[in-house]
Design a protein around this nucleic acid. Sequence first.
DNA 1: ACAGGTAAGTTCCGAAACAGAACCTAGGGG
DNA 2: CCCCTAGGTTCTGTTTCGGAACTTACCTGT
Lengths: 162, 162
Amino acid sequence: MRWENLDQEPCSLSRTLSVVGDRWTLIVLRDCFLGVRRFDDFEARLGVTRHVLADRLKKLVNAGVLEKRPYQERPRREEYRLTEKGRDLYPVILSLVHWGDRHMADEAGPPIRHRHRACGAYTRGILTCAECGEELHPHDVEVEESPAWTGQLLPPKKAIDR
Amino acid sequence: MRWENLDQEPCSLSRTLSVVGDRWTLIVLRDCFLGVRRFDDFEARLGVTRHVLADRLKKLVNAGVLEKRPYQERPRREEYRLTEKGRDLYPVILSLVHWGDRHMADEAGPPIRHRHRACGAYTRGILTCAECGEELHPHDVEVEESPAWTGQLLPPKKAIDR
DNA sequence: ACAGGTAAGTTCCGAAACAGAACCTAGGGG
DNA sequence: CCCCTAGGTTCTGTTTCGGAACTTACCTGT
């Protein structure tokens, strides 16, 4: 399979990665959540080449994750802002950050702390069940085909049974 | 900057992506959480070339996310299993899946449902504050440099202020 | 009028990564 | 002896990436 067909797969994870699974894309989005909006600011902070940055921004705009908005005319300049679809990626970003905090930090510890305004505490995000509020762990969650897709998905059962 | 130096960056997200930010790596991990353990099963389900699959599995083992375990001798065969470090990526996977369910599904809806054994409901994971239990949104979270890193991080302030 | 600066890209080239297919290794089964 | 299985490695051509220079369309100062 080629990477460019990933958005056709019957798998929400593959489809998500067809948008944000490229090299640099999630790092661009990290900076969006930090308030960066302009081309040259992205470039200065990211260390990515202008070529790749232009490509990633264009793809994110086409995917509806960012939108381009003029902030001045003559000369026309535009900035990039998260759409609601983009802001919905926040749990993804925060989960990735938290894993890095826990498993990839060096002696100095994680570089960034997150304070939750509502309760005032330094916090981390945890994944909880939208129905009962308990924390979700892999073995508490049973995966099943949704009825509309029955029989069209590749079952991993052979692998699980043995 | 080159992609290979990403694990040195003072940013937990970059460091996480140095492990799982490659093309295909998160899709390999999706299958790990579905119970797939063997080389040929990954290949059949993923549609990735054997070359790339071998490379990703090796990198994940080196990163401590998967471990290789013999399941028979003569001929020796080994399977890949998630370590605890790997299982800690569950929130990342589930957040990506949920975003795809919401924003990338077609008319048939999302292909997979998740049932939470503890409460019996079909559920989704939401990101909540580990301290107060409220759902976390981008604007409720204030980012600050941790004391050990003060002054060593690139501030996005110029971008935020204007 | 002209030099230099700014913001947001685009173009060009060599290096690295990827896709597809064939090949290899160490055994087992008929 | 031939074919099969599991888990890879090698080979070849196409894409994508990294680094640097160039472009466009204005603005500012002299």
